[in-house]
């Protein structure tokens, strides 16, 4: 793209506000001129500021680390803030993530879903003793293990894996790759007192790890490139082994 010559973008957004009585979902197309380095964060804000003050969407960090702005970008879940318009055709569509409760337009309630997931899977370290002596030197951990835990802890709960998941689309109680990855993260953590039997209690059924059909769209759309394929298989092996224990 040379200086001064920018494409005319046609962005079709799903518009629907369930709060408005009688409203029905529809697509609305906005036209705007592309700019250098334009991200969907910039484009959507420009639309809201100059064309349509009612358009709803969520951004927080606008740097790809908070997970607020996941949406269906031309049919694929992704983070809008770090999607550059130059990587998209001149006409494209934006839609809210499926599965999650729709707030309005492109805004969905991933927070509510994630909190429920956390409560259901108990995604916190179940410490071996309740009180820690904060004055004493911390318990040691192998540097490699700490890094491995962090690699799984990089999940930003954006919901892309759930939106990309065929199982989750069909069955709303499916815990998704985000949940199974959390279990993998805590299972790896020696500070967590839980055993495989405990983890089985929360994910050992068809709405948990056995509901996964290994379509692996989660792995392919994860904006953080988490090793979901490996973790799903790993947890499946560990949980399946309990079937005979």
């Amino acid at each position: 793209m040379t200086n001064g010559e920018h494409r005319k973008l046609k962005i079709s957004c799903l518009r629907y506000n369930p709060q408005e009585p009688g409203a029905a979902p529809r697509m609305q197309t906005y036209e705007l001129e592309e700019a250098d380095g334009m991200t969907l964060f910039i484009a959507l804000n420009e639309i809201r500021e100059k064309q349509d003050a009612s358009l709803q969407f969520d951004f927080v960090c606008r740097a790809g680390i908070c997970g607020s702005c996941a949406m269906m970008i031309n049919g694929r879940p992704g983070l809008a803030c770090r999607t550059q318009t130059k990587d998209l055709p001149a006409s494209f569509t934006l839609a809210p993530l499926p599965v999650f409760e729709l707030i309005a337009d492109l805004s969905v309630n991933t927070g509510k879903w994630m909190r429920a997931m956390s409560e259901r899977l108990q995604t916190w370290v179940h410490m071996k003793s309740a009180e820690v002596d904060l004055k004493r030197i911390e318990e040691r951990m192998e540097p490699e293990l700490a890094e491995e835990i962090y690699l799984l802890d990089r999940c930003i709960e954006c919901g892309c894996c759930v939106a990309g998941c065929g199982s989750a689309r069909m069955r709303e109680d499916f815990i998704g790759a985000v949940g199974i990855n959390k279990i993998a993260r805590f299972r790896l953590d020696p500070r967590d007192a839980r055993t495989d039997g405990d983890y089985y209690e929360v994910i050992g059924d068809d709405s948990g790890v056995f509901g996964c059909m290994s379509l692996l769209a989660c792995h392919d759309v994860c904006p953080k490139d988490l090793p979901l394929q490996t973790q799903l298989a790993f947890i499946r092996r560990k949980m399946a082994a309990l079937g005979w224990k």
């Binding site: 916190w124 370290v125 410490m127 820690v132 904060l134 004493r136 951990m141 890094e147 500070r191 967590d192």
Partner: peptide
Amino acid sequence: RELAAWGVPWSR
């Protein structure tokens, strides 16, 4: 140290 006990994977 509290966060270490709660689960923060501090680099070691």
